[in-house]
């Protein structure tokens, strides 16, 4: 097994751990953390392909990871603000209790 495949398997395992957290937990903060883990797994893929790709001198993977980290930070800030707003209105951070818009 080549190192690139090891890196890809590591990142897909991390993605699945984040997916379990996002699907199986009912605490909103934990769901947000699971989504952050999935974003980090995608970043691992970018770096692995940059490291073992044919043109590492171009630096495309590194640039892309920098932008992804910026977007993930913005997403974390907005998500946490939403959690705090929902908690202020409902006194709860359970996902199932925020169902006012459910059809």
């Amino acid at each position: 097994m080549s190192p690139l495949q090891l890196c890809l398997i590591l990142s897909s395992l991390l993605f699945c751990v984040g997916l379990v957290g996002a699907l199986a937990r009912s605490n909103t903060i934990l769901v947000l953390l699971g989504i952050e883990l999935m974003l980090n797994a995608a970043n691992l893929n970018f770096i692995a392909f940059w490291r073992y790709g044919p043109h590492p001198a171009a630096g495309t993977g590194v640039i892309f990871v920098l932008f992804t980290i910026a977007v993930a930070a913005a997403e974390a800030a907005v998500g946490i603000a939403l959690v705090i707003a929902v908690h202020r209105h409902r006194k709860s951070v359970r996902l199932q209790e925020a169902a006012s818009l459910k059809g």
Partner: peptide, 11 residues
């Protein structure tokens, strides 16, 4: 640490 391992120090 993985990024350091892969040689992307700035990231």
């Amino acid at each position: 640490a993985f990024y350091l391992w892969a040689g992307a120090e700035f990231v």
